[in-house]
Amino acid sequence: MRPAPPPTPDDIQAVIDTERHREGALLPILHALQEAYGHIPEGAYPLLTATLGITRAELHGVVSFYHDFRDVPAGRHVVKVCRAEACQSVGANAMAATLLDRFGLDWHGTTPDGRVTIEPVYCLGLCACGPAAMVDGKLIGRADPAKLAAALSEPSVEEAPA
């Protein structure tokens, strides 16, 4: 699959401008950029520093601090598996190991075809129905590898844009 062309500075600035009016606008802007492009594009850095009057070092400090923000896009499907205590008490570790093994991945890894990224998450608030996972934003309670694989192969998921 051919990668999409990088966004133009005007495109990026338009996204920045939707959120810049807020008090403490940086996180809302970063969320908007990631929503639009799947990651924080390199081209956004000079525009963000100029718009907000911060240094590149400050910006890098913020982007790298938060687990959510990506330098490069994730796979077309993102599976987040809860690793926290409540899910561990009902077998999350074994389930995660099976899942990672099935895709030949380690945590944060993406399959070579760019289809699936598997990430740890520390609590989805589904602690009374674990193990919990999220596949492309859809929550799954009492998850097992079969349920997750099924969620990944649903036609609606398969057709979702990258």
Binding site: G24, L26, D68
Partner: peptide, 28 residues
């Protein structure tokens, strides 16, 4: 009032770290 969205940092549940995050800074 308005909603603000965190970005996956557990420590931002600590109130001063949350305030830094709200201001658009590292959640230190």
């Amino acid at each position: 009032m308005e909603v603000r969205i965190g970005a996956g940092a557990y420590v931002c549940g600590e109130e001063t770290s949350l305030l830094n995050s709200l201001e658009g800074k590292r959640g230190v």
